[in-house]
Simulated assay, not measured.
Amino acid sequence: MTLTVSGVTVSVDGTTLVDGATFEAPEGSVTALLGPNGAGKSTLLRALVGIRRPDAGSVFFAGDDVLALPRRERARRLALVEQDASTDLSLTGRAVAGLGRTPHESFLGGGDPASSELVEQALAEAGALPFADRVIPSLSGGERQRVLLARALAQAPRLLLLDEPMNHLDIAAQLDVLGLLTRLAASGVTVVAALHDLALAAAHATHVVVLSHGRVVASGATAEVLTPDLIREVYGVRAAWTTNPLTGAPLLALG
């Protein structure tokens, strides 16, 4: 199921934050949304799920108009993990993850028989089980990030969008989450993640979308798009492809 974005434009108080964004995120892929700070990545992700309605453009997933879907149906198909989302409510991590099952519950209040099992599975996949019984205000930033990821996984989405999911995570946790995203993509979930670290994106994303000043300047297969010339133009840094001495995989070096 492919995500197809066409001409999405978002303006706030007369300022255009996203300008005609057009790209595809292929089925079962990890697509990295890249760009310098202020490029429009967070705004675009929020527009794709209808949190901020675009001024123009369309968003289709698996042939359906995402923005025309009822909110409940939309939440059954896709999930967004926002950066630095927090709450002061004294809910446990398990309770927050359980909120991901809400779209699947009956309007009449009937429970979801698979809910408990799916929530536990989501907490385990996100690495949040060790602190699932602690209240959210007591958790570190990285622990909260894992709980929010668990909530999204509990939704069982076919399209998973993440805004800087590596925020607050140490290196080992970052690699764990990237490994999880790769496994989800292999299982058929389409993943779109805004990432700050170019090297991590180059190593783990199969496709990339590069934003600059609100516009998509390039999109496609990672190695084909992330050329030294494009990186110099968008980020103002030097780059070269080499080989990771530990894994033998392509490695993007920056300097």
Rank of each mutant, 00 (worst) to 15 (best):
I51Q: 10
L175K: 06
P103L: 01
A202W: 07
A124K: 08
A173I: 07
S90E: 15
L129C: 12
H213Q: 13
A97H: 07
P137I: 01
A126R: 02
L148N: 11
E224F: 14
A239M: 05
D133F: 10
L254W: 03
P130R: 14
R183M: 13
G14C: 05
T92F: 03
R134V: 00
P54R: 00
R146K: 12
E117W: 09
L169W: 10
G100R: 04
L181N: 02
D176E: 13
A132L: 06
L45T: 00
F107N: 07
L161Q: 05
A32V: 00
V147C: 06
G35S: 09
V59N: 14
H196L: 10
D55G: 13
T9D: 06
G179R: 15
L184P: 03
V210T: 11
F61R: 06
T9Q: 09
G14H: 02
P54C: 11
G127K: 01
S219N: 11
A185M: 09
G7R: 15
R146P: 06
A218V: 15
S11F: 11
Q174C: 14
V191C: 12
R71Y: 03
T2H: 12
R77I: 00
D170G: 04
M1T: 14
E27G: 15
D65G: 09
L148F: 15
G14M: 01
T247K: 09
A249Q: 11
L178S: 01
L44C: 10
P157E: 06
G236R: 02
L89N: 07
R151T: 02
A32S: 06
I136R: 09
G20Q: 10
V189Q: 05
G111L: 15
V210I: 08
V12C: 09
A202L: 10
G7W: 07
A114T: 14
T9C: 12
A218C: 07
R151P: 03
Q121P: 14
S106N: 15
L48V: 02
T102G: 03
L175P: 03
A239W: 02
R72S: 01
S219C: 13
F23P: 05
L33P: 00
G28Y: 04
D65N: 08
G127P: 00
A32Y: 00
R146E: 03
L175T: 11
L80S: 07
A150R: 02
D88L: 14
S11I: 08
A249I: 04
A156C: 08
M1I: 11
T206K: 08
R74V: 11
L230W: 01
H196T: 04
A124C: 06
E120V: 01
T2F: 10
L149H: 02
T16W: 08
A122R: 01
E224L: 12
A152D: 02
L44M: 07
M1D: 09
G63P: 03
R76F: 00
V177R: 04
I51M: 05
A203C: 08
V177A: 03
I171S: 06
